[in-house]
Write a protein that binds this DNA or RNA. Structure first.
Lengths: 226, 226
DNA sequence: ACGGATTTCCGTACAGTGCACGGAAGGAGG
DNA sequence: CCTCCTTCCGTGCACTGTACGGAAATCCGT
């Protein structure tokens, strides 16, 4: 019977099994699981139960996949909230950005290599731009303020991530950890302050540094806002 | 004559052709010339006119070489000058740091991956620490200030470098460049400001952002200093 | 209904990578 | 002279990105 053709559930390519979206989400998952060094086209194809070369129907190169994955996770940050003071808006947006970059610790390494030109990344910077322009800040101070905020965010999370990565390696880098802890202790001991490094530490340091920058921006706004 | 032992000018067994130092300086040269993606142990050995595996007598792994090269160029930054106001000292130090990172554009990508635990990197952060502690700043604000400054520096140069790298590629990324220029223009046009991107632009933006942060730090110093 | 054209999939192959291993060259110490 | 020990490095292995060409399945014009 010729209709039996409808019952061959997966003989060969009826509808395309693969798609750009499926590849990108699989790439994000692989990067989360294995990091940037564990990422390979073969591993990505295996995760999709496809042949390696099948990916290249939808994607130009490995770099292409990485760019796509990077912009994909930028969308997780979302738009800044519409209400609140400008300080609250920016603090919330940067805090959420930091959370996303900690959830996907491979982001800083890619950002350092590839330009941020995906639609989601551009939309984010545009939103921050609007929040500050609404307060009356103008170029070049406006551009500098945005650059400072994003540079700070990105630099902070990068060192935060490599710190945790170093500390989590069991015993191979024990010597490195001892070295930096000694370094910190030498500093702190001079001033009688207890050295301790944990998540809460990074949280408060992030907010302290952010408020440093926000104070500097506030001093450049045309009139004072609470 | 037993004294002849004192005239053996070279070290123990035989004068080694290779050395850790020679490998490190060759690695810096190779990274400057080819970038991090063009760096390979085979290319490094070729540059030293040696067999690939000879390197492994002096170096544990490729990662090891990269760590060594990174700390090597950190020494180019030098110590902060001893006199001047704290703002002048920090501005000078950060400006010199930025210059070194532009001279070796592969630095941000490595910093995003590996922890900064080489002796030269640690010495630099210690010097900045001292300059601010001398003004009376104490932890946790002191630690936050240092982290903010280095995060800013590193994030700024990273985006600066990828920007130039993108722009310099002849025509392949012309579309990307057009996209970001459109983006900038859309912003600037809203406010009637001319968009232009060149070296001087990055210089002034770097100093604007730096002064933003320094103002924030100044507000936290115990008593006012000019 | 049939014969191409097109789309999807992927096996094979090639040039490149980091590095483990084992061996050769040659001076040093006995 | 023999032996050890340091430096050097050729070979090999598992792995990478991707160019190429072919096979299978669907679509389309007739």
């Amino acid at each position: 019977m010729p209709e039996s053709i409808w019952f061959r559930e997966d003989a060969r390519p009826r509808r395309p099994r693969l798609s750009r979206e499926r590849i990108v989400t699989a790439a994000v998952g692989l990067l989360d699981a294995e990091g940037v060094t564990g990422f390979s086209m073969r591993a990505l194809a295996a995760r999709l139960q496809a042949g390696t070369m099948s990916l290249y129907e939808y994607v130009r190169s490995k770099e292409d996949v990485l760019d796509l994955a990077l912009d994909e996770v930028f969308s997780e940050i979302g738009e800044p909230s519409a209400d609140g003071t400008w300080r609250e808006i920016l603090t919330g947006h940067l805090t959420r950005s930091r959370a996303v970059m900690r959830r996907h610790p491979w982001m800083p390494a890619l950002i350092a290599t590839r330009p941020l030109l995906g639609p989601n990344a551009l939309a984010g910077s545009r939103a921050v731009y609007g929040a500050l322009a609404r307060e009356g800040l103008r170029p070049p101070e406006l551009t500098a303020a945005i650059g400072t905020l994003s540079s700070y965010l990105y630099g902070f999370v990068a060192s935060e991530n490599t710190w945790w990565a170093t500390v989590r390696t069991p015993a191979a880098d024990a010597e490195l950890r001892a070295r930096v802890t000694d370094h910190l202790l030498a500093h702190e001991a001079e001033l009688g302050h207890q050295a301790r490094v944990d998540d809460a530490d990074f949280d408060t340091h992030f907010l302290l540094g952010l408020n440093l920058i926000l104070d500097g921006i506030a001093a450049r706004l045309p009139e004072d806002t609470p």
